[in-house]
């Protein structure tokens, strides 16, 4: 199974590496959103610093929607989905493989966004381990839910519009949890970020477990 997971993840990442869509389009989009927030909040440094956590995670979610769409657009070309189904690879392994590839891409994106936020909004980091742990756990949650809804939307004529409306409400707890934990790590709001991290962990576990179970049901008819 883990061999298959590596195979699928490797395939997705290789395609991304060669096509450069993630680096050429998704990453610039994410930075663009950060800049737009700056305009929307009237370049108010205090406001930007106060809301860094929330703005960061909203940007991550929007960019994740693009990355997820991209991840399943790969499969729709040349009857790839049929090939996946016929490959005999367990659906759960395909789920973990695609989710892993998404996690890798999102983590890279988050590092880039982190640098962008540091330059554009100028927050100060007070608890670096919490920051890193939050980003890791939240990313797993986003990738798991995204992979499940990605395969559901894949192949539909309305896939571009159905994915965000399904995915974003489901990720609301991730947005809340990650934002609060970041607020603590950046010292903007006095909350216990580690508690929020635990909630994020629980959410991620639920999405990963249900995703692995339900992926096969959806792959059947994507």
């Amino acid at each position: 199974m883990w061999h298959d997971v590596r195979l699928i993840a490797g395939k997705d990442l290789r395609i991304e590496w060669r096509s450069q869509v993630a680096t050429g389009q998704v990453a610039p989009f994410a930075i663009l959103v950060l800049v737009l927030f700056g305009f929307a909040l009237d370049a108010d440094t205090v406001a930007l610093r106060t809301f860094t956590g929330g703005l960061y995670w909203v940007t991550v979610l929007f960019s994740a929607v693009l990355a997820i769409q991209r991840s399943f657009a790969l499969e729709s070309a040349d009857g790839n989905r049929d090939a996946l189904r016929l490959s005999g690879i367990e659906p759960a392994a395909i789920f973990f493989g695609k989710a892993t590839a998404l996690v890798v891409q999102l983590v890279l994106l988050e590092v880039l966004l982190g640098a962008g936020v540091a330059v554009l909004y100028g927050p100060s980091v007070e608890d670096f381990p919490l920051l890193v742990a939050t980003a890791g756990v939240a990313t797993i949650g986003v990738a798991a839910a995204g992979t499940l809804y990605g395969v559901l939307a894949a192949g539909l004529r309305v896939r571009e519009t159905i994915l965000p409306i399904l995915l974003l409400p489901v990720l609301a707890p991730v947005l809340i949890g990650a934002t609060r934990a970041f607020d603590d790590a950046l010292g903007t709001v006095a909350v216990n970020g580690w508690n929020w991290l635990a909630l994020l962990g629980l959410t991620a576990v639920v999405y990963v477990a249900f995703g692995a179970l339900a992926f096969g049901v959806l792959l059947e008819d994507s």
Binding site: A145, L148, L152, L166, P169, V170, A172, P173, I176, G177, R180, N195, W196, L199, L202, T203, V206, F210, A214, V217, L218, E220, D221
Partner: peptide, 25 residues
């Protein structure tokens, strides 16, 4: 039906998580 069933179950699984996170928030 398959798609709807999965979406319906995720939504229901999400109810306690949303409730809890909003409560803390």
């Amino acid at each position: 039906s398959r798609r709807a069933a999965v979406v319906g179950i995720i939504a229901a699984l999400n109810i306690p998580i949303v409730r809890f996170s909003v409560d803390w928030w």
